[in-house]
Amino acid sequence: MAAAAAAGAGPEMVRGQVFDVGPRYTNLSYIGEGAYGMVCSAYDNVNKVRVAIKKISPFEHQTYCQRTLREIKILLRFRHENIIGINDIIRAPTIEQMKDVYIVQDLMETDLYKLLKTQHLSNDHICYFLYQILRGLKYIHSANVLHRDLKPSNLLLNTTCDLKICDFGLARVADPDHDHTGFLTEYVATRWYRAPEIMLNSKGYTKSIDIWSVGCILAEMLSNRPIFPGKHYLDQLNHILGILGSPSQEDLNCIINLKARNYLLSLPHKNKVPWNRLFPNADSKALDLLDKMLTFNPHKRIEVEQALAHPYLEQYYDPSDEPIAEAPFKFDMELDDLPKEKLKELIFEETARFQPGYRS
Results as ranks from 00 to 15, higher is better:
P319G: 08
Q355I: 14
L157W: 10
K292H: 12
E326R: 10
D210A: 02
D332K: 11
V104D: 02
T185E: 02
E12K: 01
H299V: 07
L218N: 03
I74V: 02
S284P: 13
N82M: 11
Q119N: 15
D235A: 05
A5Y: 15
Y317P: 14
L69H: 15
G85R: 15
R225P: 07
T159W: 05
D44E: 00
S122K: 10
P247W: 03
G242D: 02
E303L: 15
G22I: 12
K285F: 10
S248D: 12
I53K: 07
G8P: 08
P274T: 01
E60Q: 10
L289D: 05
R277D: 03
Q249G: 11
L346P: 03
G169N: 15
L112H: 10
A352Y: 15
T94S: 00
K138L: 07
L258G: 10
D337S: 12
T181S: 00
T190I: 04
T26Y: 11
P152S: 03
K99C: 09
L130K: 06
Y128I: 06
L252Q: 01
A307H: 12
F129N: 12
R91P: 14
G37E: 00
Y205C: 03
S142L: 05
P268V: 12
I89A: 11
I198D: 07
K342F: 15
D167W: 09
E314W: 15
N144Y: 00
C166K: 02
R24G: 10
S153Q: 09
N154Y: 00
L313G: 03
R172K: 04
S266Q: 14
S142W: 13
K272A: 13
E109R: 08
F329K: 13
H232N: 05
I72V: 10
I72R: 02
R194I: 00
V304I: 08
L155G: 04
E250C: 11
N154E: 01
P280Q: 07
V304H: 09
D291P: 09
E322Y: 15
A6G: 09
D321L: 11
V101Q: 06
E350A: 15
K272V: 10
S57K: 13
K203S: 05
Y312V: 09
Y317R: 15
L170D: 05
G37I: 02
M13T: 07
L237Y: 05
H120M: 08
I240K: 04
M98E: 10
I347N: 02
D291A: 06
G245T: 08
E322I: 15
D106M: 15
A52S: 01
I74Q: 08
K285V: 12
S360F: 09
G204R: 01
S320L: 07
K54V: 01
T94H: 09
R70E: 02
G245R: 02
E186T: 09
Y317N: 01
L267A: 11
L287P: 02
G182D: 09
I74P: 04
K151C: 02
N154K: 01
P268K: 11
H120Q: 02
R148S: 02
D235R: 02
P280R: 08
C216I: 05
V18D: 00
L346T: 07
F354C: 11
A286V: 12
R67M: 00
S41M: 08
G37K: 03
E71W: 10
N297K: 02
G182S: 05
H125P: 05
L69W: 15
R77E: 14
D283Q: 14
C40K: 13
I95H: 10
Y30P: 12
L157D: 01
A6N: 15
L146Y: 11
K272S: 11
K151D: 08
D291H: 10
S223I: 12
H269V: 10
D179Y: 00
P319V: 07
L289I: 12
E341C: 14
N262E: 03
N144K: 02
Q249D: 14
I86E: 13
V14A: 04
I95Q: 11
Y102Q: 08
R277E: 09
A143T: 06
R225M: 12
Y64K: 11
A92I: 15
E305L: 13
F279I: 00
T118W: 11
N154D: 04
P23F: 15
P339C: 11
G16T: 13
R301G: 04
T63M: 10
P176I: 06
E220P: 03
K330G: 07
W275G: 03
L157H: 09
L258R: 12
C65E: 11
K207V: 05
L264I: 10
K292V: 13
S223L: 04
Y43G: 14
N158I: 00
M221Q: 06
I140S: 03
N276I: 00
Y233I: 01
F78A: 14
I256K: 08
D283F: 09
E345P: 14
T181D: 10
I53F: 02
N257C: 08
C65N: 14
Q355T: 15
Y263L: 02
Y64A: 05
V46N: 15
I302H: 06
W192P: 01
L157M: 05
K203W: 04
L278E: 09
D177S: 08
R79L: 08
A327C: 14
T159R: 06
D162V: 04
P274H: 02
M38L: 00
I140Q: 03
S213T: 09
L134H: 07
S122N: 03
I86M: 11
D149M: 03
L346G: 07
N238H: 01
A9E: 12
I140R: 02
H61T: 08
F348Q: 09
D288H: 13
S142A: 12
K48W: 10
H310M: 10
R91K: 14
T118E: 08
V188W: 03
D283S: 14
A307W: 09
L163F: 11
R91E: 10
P176Q: 00
I53L: 10
H239R: 15
G204I: 07
E71P: 14
R50P: 10
T160I: 05
I165S: 09
I83T: 14
P93T: 00
I140N: 02
K342V: 13
R135N: 15
